[in-house]
Each structure stands twice: as C-alpha cells, then as structure tokens.
C-alpha cells in the first residue's frame, strides 16, 4: 500500500513514522510547494512562443510541463524563479517579473 504522506508531518506520533523511513510510492515531493521560494516569476508571452521547447530541458525544477510536443504554462506552485528558461529562449518569449 502506498504511503499516505499527509499523515507524516512534524506533529505525527512515532507510530506514524514509517519503519526505516521508507516511503512506498513515488513523486511525493509534489506536495511540497517550492514556489514559495520565488522572488521573481517567469511570464510566457504565448504570441512570441514558437513551441521550440528549448526552455524545457534547462529547468532544474521540472516546472515546464510538455504534452504532445507543446509546452504548457509554468508550474508556479514549484517554480523557484531561477530565470534560466528566460535566458534560454531564443525568441524572448519568457520574461522575469519581480515578485511571486
């Protein structure tokens, strides 16, 4: 059975901590919102975007989802605002705006 990580938090009694700290399941980090770290935010200009996808492999945070060879909007729940994608875009379609 997959671990229900909502039951594991800083107030959990010892009985709820999984033996050996093992986690059954995958990708549970999605529940942790690193987007709160951001001090600047990428903004996509859909008109300028040619769907070349060069912004997608350079993201350290897997925050540019791609479906059927087209990128979707940023995952701002997790994007840390590093700005690498903006610089990698050959068409100036991504700009970084100050703040969250």
């Amino acid at each position: 059975m997959a671990t229900d990580i909502s039951k594991i938090h800083e107030k959990s009694p010892w009985q709820d901590i999984t033996p050996g700290n093992q986690i059954y399941g995958a990708g549970t980090s999605k529940d942790f919102m690193t987007g709160e770290w951001r001090t600047q935010t990428p903004v996509l200009d859909a008109e300028k975007c040619t769907q070349c996808l060069l912004c997608t492999p350079v993201c350290p945070d897997s925050c540019i989802p791609v479906k059927d060879m087209k990128r979707e909007d940023f995952d701002l729940e997790h994007c840390k605002g590093c700005g690498i994608c903006a610089k990698a875009c050959p068409f100036g379609a991504i700009s970084m705006r100050e703040g969250q």
């Binding site: 997959a2 594991i8 800083e10 959990s12 010892w14 901590i17 033996p19 700290n21 059954y24």
Partner: peptide, 21 residues
C-alpha cells in the same frame, strides 16, 4: 507494482521518532 524510496534525509522532527521505532 509500486516504487519505493529508501534512505532519506530526515530532519529533527522525525529522527527521534524513528529511533523510538
């Protein structure tokens, strides 16, 4: 059927409960 992750970094809110286990 199901992946598993072993050997995390566990911060102090978890370490002592782990030892009790």
């Amino acid at each position: 059927e199901q992946p598993m992750a072993v050997g995390p970094y566990a911060t102090s809110p978890y370490y002592m409960e782990t030892k009790k286990g």
